[in-house]
Simulated scan of single mutants.
Amino acid sequence: MSYPITGSCQCGGVKYRLLCAPEKVVACHCKACQKQSTSAFSITAFVSADAVEFEGEMQEWRRTADSGNINAARFCPTCGNRIYHYNPEQPDQIKLKPANLDDTSILQPTAHIWVSQKQSWFTIPDGVIVMDKQG
């Protein structure tokens, strides 16, 4: 894989360049991620904030996670696509929502978290880390 990789929201109003490989890629099966992704789980690529260059207007929405931390989400105000999440107390770490990358071949999660809330029909692949909660 060669970097940078480009990505964008559905309407193209927000574009970005991922400059290097993610630190890790995780699939989260919690109910909040199921609602956010409208799927069985969401995929998150953990990257340093300086490893991504963003272009375009984004809005923000926040919620308090079970841990008590704030989970802030940045998204396109036109099409609503989530671009990334972050904890305001750790602004140097971004939880990129990488399904909107132009090349999604990096989307091979090495861990599945919150499997205590996963859909019963989904089978987790062999060889990955599995956690009942966040860990």
Rank of each mutant, 00 (worst) to 15 (best):
A21C: 02
A27S: 13
Q108M: 09
K31P: 00
I129F: 02
W114A: 01
G12Y: 08
I83E: 00
K35V: 14
H85Y: 11
S39H: 10
S48L: 13
T123Q: 10
P88Q: 11
I83R: 01
E23S: 13
C33I: 08
D92P: 01
C20Q: 15
Q90I: 10
D102A: 15
R82C: 07
S116D: 10
T6D: 07
Q90S: 14
W61G: 09
D50Q: 12
K31A: 11
S2Y: 00
C28A: 06
A72W: 02
G80S: 10
S39R: 05
G80K: 08
A40F: 09
C11E: 05
I70T: 15
A99R: 14
N71Q: 12
A72C: 09
C30P: 10
L101K: 02
E53L: 10
R82I: 08
I106E: 09
R74W: 04
G12R: 11
A51M: 07
G135W: 03
A72T: 05
C76M: 09
G7H: 00
P125S: 06
P98T: 04
P88T: 10
Y3H: 02
N69W: 03
Q93A: 08
A45T: 03
E53T: 12
K31I: 13
T44N: 14
W61T: 11
V14W: 04
P125M: 07
A65P: 11
H29I: 05
P109V: 08
L18P: 03
D102F: 08
A49T: 08
Y86R: 10
Y84D: 01
Q134R: 12
A72E: 06
G56Q: 01
